[in-house]
Computed example of a mutant assay.
Amino acid sequence: MKSKILFFIFCMGISGAVSAQSPVLFGVRGGTNFSGAKGDAFTKKLYVGFEVGAYAGINFIPELGIQVEALYQQTRLSTKDYFVNNGTGIEGGNKKLNYFSIPILARLNLSSEFSLIGGPQLNVLTDKDKYLLDNRNAAFKERSSTWVAGFEFITKSRPRVSIYGRVAWGSKIENIGDGTDAKIIRMQLGIVLPIIGNEENRRR
């Protein structure tokens, strides 16, 4: 239900912005994904992965816009040698999880070069059966939702690329270790390359 409401709001917003002849933007983005997990079965260290994808955006007014992205993200974390009697333990060591993620983000343009972004993100694990618990169930959830918040800063180079930084939180792992939920932590840093529409149009 929540995803249907978000999709409806997004479609209505896009329709209104198009009728107002707001600039439409499209481009690609990519960067580093620092990730780890907070829970009894996991080490506290952050590991380096990556993310790549594309975005499409539009402005309602010069100060406010919305964008949707399609991302492929590699999330890395490490589990301890953690075994329990109820079968919810997992073999220790480094884990690589590949997600297809769809963020739907609001954009607040604070100046001609700096914006704040934030909103919900849907994550789908592409290899859910790669890691199994002692009871042979999948160790990680196939679908999860997170919140994303961050910034984008337009450089003065040519072409006018953007640098972005983000934090994503709220994605849960079920039934590992003591049976309680553990949360994945992600922090991203990367660049945005516009293909259609100049990045400065986000502020016009």
Results as ranks from 00 to 15, higher is better:
128 K>Y: 02
200 E>S: 13
48 V>I: 10
95 K>H: 08
94 N>F: 11
59 N>F: 14
143 R>M: 06
98 N>C: 11
116 L>Q: 10
8 F>D: 06
165 G>A: 12
20 A>I: 00
200 E>D: 13
93 G>H: 04
44 K>D: 01
162 S>M: 03
80 K>F: 10
68 V>W: 01
193 L>H: 05
67 Q>E: 09
145 S>D: 07
156 K>I: 04
122 L>Y: 00
180 T>Y: 09
81 D>A: 10
165 G>H: 13
197 G>R: 05
179 G>V: 14
149 A>Y: 13
6 L>I: 15
123 N>F: 05
123 N>W: 01
101 S>T: 06
162 S>N: 01
172 K>S: 07
13 G>V: 00
175 N>W: 05
50 F>I: 08
145 S>E: 14
77 L>G: 05
71 L>Q: 08
164 Y>T: 06
12 M>G: 03
181 D>V: 06
28 V>F: 04
176 I>D: 00
136 R>E: 14
181 D>M: 12
67 Q>H: 04
162 S>F: 08
107 R>G: 10
20 A>L: 15
128 K>C: 04
27 G>E: 06
62 P>L: 14
204 R>S: 01
151 F>G: 08
62 P>W: 08
96 K>N: 13
187 M>W: 11
15 S>D: 01
41 A>L: 00
172 K>T: 14
90 I>E: 00
178 D>V: 15
9 I>Q: 14
95 K>C: 05
58 I>T: 00
74 Q>V: 00
75 T>S: 07
181 D>Q: 00
145 S>K: 12
71 L>M: 15
100 F>T: 09
172 K>P: 07
177 G>C: 03
104 I>C: 12
131 Y>F: 15
30 G>C: 12
56 A>I: 09
64 L>V: 00
64 L>S: 08
194 P>A: 13
182 A>D: 14
33 N>F: 10
161 V>D: 05
124 V>Q: 06
146 T>Y: 13
37 A>T: 02
111 S>A: 12
178 D>W: 13
47 Y>D: 12
144 S>K: 09
200 E>G: 08
43 T>Y: 14
41 A>H: 08
136 R>T: 12
28 V>H: 04
106 A>N: 02
135 N>F: 09
23 P>H: 11
5 I>D: 01
49 G>I: 04
81 D>V: 13
195 I>L: 15
3 S>N: 10
96 K>P: 08
149 A>V: 04
64 L>W: 05
35 S>M: 06
204 R>D: 02
204 R>K: 10
104 I>T: 07
156 K>E: 05
147 W>S: 15
41 A>M: 06
198 N>L: 15
101 S>F: 02
68 V>F: 03
197 G>C: 03
184 I>F: 13
158 R>E: 01
125 L>M: 11
94 N>R: 09
182 A>Y: 01
97 L>A: 13
59 N>W: 09
11 C>R: 03
135 N>K: 11
5 I>T: 02
113 E>M: 09
138 A>L: 04
68 V>P: 01
70 A>F: 13
60 F>L: 03
184 I>P: 02
5 I>L: 08
141 K>F: 11
200 E>L: 15
160 R>G: 08
151 F>H: 03
30 G>H: 09
43 T>D: 10
91 E>L: 12
57 G>I: 06
107 R>Q: 07
175 N>C: 05
23 P>N: 12
142 E>R: 13
142 E>D: 10
200 E>Q: 14
